[in-house]
Amino acid sequence: MKERRSIGVATVVVAALAFSWLVSAQGLWQSFLRALFPAQPVVLMPRDTLAAFVLQHLALVGISSALTIAVGIPLGIFVTRRSGREFRGLVVAATDLGQTFPPVAVLALAMPVLGFGFWPTVMALFIYGMFPVVSGAISGIESVPKAVLEAAEGMGMSPWQVLLRVELPLAARVILSGVRTSVAINIGTATVGAAIGTGGLGVPIIGGLAVQNMAYVLEGAIPAALLAVLADAALAQVEAAVTVQEAAAG
């Protein structure tokens, strides 16, 4: 079991290294895209290197996902507490709405307040990715068997001890799968930020659409897709790490 886990981690590390090498290999992309689109005079967006786009993208995703997680998980936990239960419906409805509301519209609405650039996009992504995190936290905590909670309370654990020693360990897996979904969505959605000049892998995609250069579009889309797969695999390892005990017990 332990062995299989370390193989999994090693695979993710190797894949991450391979990805970083790939996106910094400017020449390789050049010849690859040239082969696909021989008619295009320029196949790589000249504004920045691919590696720079990827780093911008990672910053965007990293910061917005961190905010989503930092707010979403406590919010999900709060509405499962006795004191927060009455807000459960409201919070679920609001985060659900956040996901149905198009991120581009959020950008448009946020721009007058936050201006162009990085922060409106972070805000749009923060709102958009909230729903899976919050609902993951809620359903994770609500999946803890009632008998286990009764035993914990009956043995004299304080509400905090019940949360930290019983509910969170048992809910960790479901909470993390919500995080995984949110991050994967975020990586794809973060490309819209380019529309208001945020940078990231959306720049070649949107730029390519504007000038009808499909090579640009692929330059942004392929790394974005690979990044989503890679992030998902990495989070899957985290998920396996927190559930390894239970799996061993099964």
Binding site: A147, V166, L170, Q245, E246
Partner: peptide, 14 residues
């Protein structure tokens, strides 16, 4: 200070 045993036992699975 009160031992507590319930029908569904409620052992902590983790």
């Amino acid at each position: 200070g009160l031992g507590y045993v319930i029908q569904s036992i409620g052992l902590f699975p983790h």
